[in-house]
């Protein structure tokens, strides 16, 4: 991957939300590159800021309740400098979104065909008939049986899996180059989830679209994504290739997450538990390593004072130095005592 392939470049993005007259950063100075034709997963627990990130790219936040700074370069322009009207030319055409709950993401009073066509109305010059034709083609593409019939059905007449296919159809209607999928399979049954994952992968292969996959489910990440960015308390703590990450996660938070999952290997054993709770936005300690309070009694010296993301291997970035001293054995955390090998940087 070279710099020429970069589709989206997020630079120093800070998104703050208003809580009781004060603004708190849900994304705190974050950086991320998304390359062409790849799936990047943004992983974290509820409240970590992963959805806020996706919404920032699309300019979906409520303007009075949010402050955004930084840069979001997309195909040579900074989306943050765009007005709402200018953004409307990008939304749906260049970047589109898939939402979690197919039940609520569709307008209950509009036939699904019209909902798929709606974007084309604003982004293309297609005639009414052509739009309908295209909508039916897309229904076909997301593998909906009898697309002509489904075209004029209402959302409540379709099953959950079908509805999610409609949501995907809406997202790909104008063949965008980037899709932000916010928990696209969380509300679905497992067998349907598997099929939606396969569908998204196939669409990505065929349409050469990049996908930002926002999820809490490492299983889905493993099945779909090329790269992963783990988010904790508004910051990325680890970014890397999924394959390498799953075999050898580095940051204590990534490790803990992975070990807290039940799997074939830890059957009958206790699962790893992270101490404490995810700090809420307005109670967040913004100084130093944000994960420190959740690592059992670690020495200050293993953490950096102002932790930064560092590339420790090619394409594998980790925040803070504490990862060098954190291990999990039989799901129990082991923190090595600080020795003299103070991290010296690259």
């Amino acid at each position: 991957m070279s710099n020429d392939d970069i589709l989206l470049q997020v630079e120093d993005l800070t998104t703050s939300f208003r809580i009781d007259e004060q603004f708190y950063p849900a994304n705190d100075h974050i950086n991320l590159d998304v390359y062409e034709n790849e799936i990047v997963a943004i992983v974290g627990e509820s409240g970590c800021g992963k959805s806020a990130f996706g919404h920032s790219i699309m300019g979906m936040h409520h303007q009075e309740q949010t402050k955004i700074s930084g840069k979001i370069h997309f195909k040579g322009v900074d989306l943050l400098s765009y007005s709402n009207t200018q953004l409307n030319k990008v939304r749906g055409k260049e970047i589109s979104m898939i939402f979690q709950d197919p039940l609520t993401a569709l307008n209950p009073l509009m036939i699904v065909g019209k909902q798929i066509e709606e974007g084309m109305k604003y982004h293309t010059k297609l005639s009414k008939n052509k739009r309908k034709q295209k909508a039916i083609e897309i229904l076909n593409e997301v593998k909906i049986p009898q697309p002509e019939r489904v075209y004029s059905q209402y959302p409540h007449e379709l099953s959950g899996g079908m509805r999610q296919r409609i949501v995907i159809a809406i997202a790909i209607a104008c063949e965008p180059s980037l899709i932000i999928a916010d928990e696209p399979t969380t509300a679905l049954d497992v067998t349907i989830q598997a099929r939606i994952i396969d569908l998204l992968k196939e669409l990505k292969r065929r349409m050469k679209t990049s996908i930002i996959l926002i999820t809490h489910d490492l299983g889905v990440v493993s099945e779909m994504a090329d790269r992963i960015a783990v988010m904790y308390a508004g910051e990325f703590v680890e970014i890397g290739e999924v394959k390498r990450f799953l075999k050898n996660p580095l940051h204590p938070y990534s490790k803990s997450l992975l070990y807290s999952l039940p799997s074939k290997n830890n059957q009958g054993e206790k699962l790893h538990v992270i101490k404490g709770v995810v700090p809420s936005l307005n109670h967040l300690q913004r100084q130093g390593c944000r994960f420190k309070p959740r690592m059992n009694g670690t020495d200050d010296s293993i953490h950096e004072e102002t932790p930064t993301l560092r590339e420790v291997e090619k394409g594998h970035w980790v925040r803070c130095t504490c990862y060098k001293h954190f291990h999990i054995e039989n799901s129990h955390q082991v923190v090595e005592e600080e020795k003299d090998d103070v991290f010296q940087g690259q």
Binding site: M58, M60, T85, L87, N88, K89, V90, R91, G92, K93, S96, M97, F99, A105, L106, N107, Q115, E118, G119, Y122, H123, V167, I170, A171, A173
Partner: peptide, 9 residues
Amino acid sequence: KTAKSKGVP
């Protein structure tokens, strides 16, 4: 949100 993400004014 879906409508907004489609670029509907």
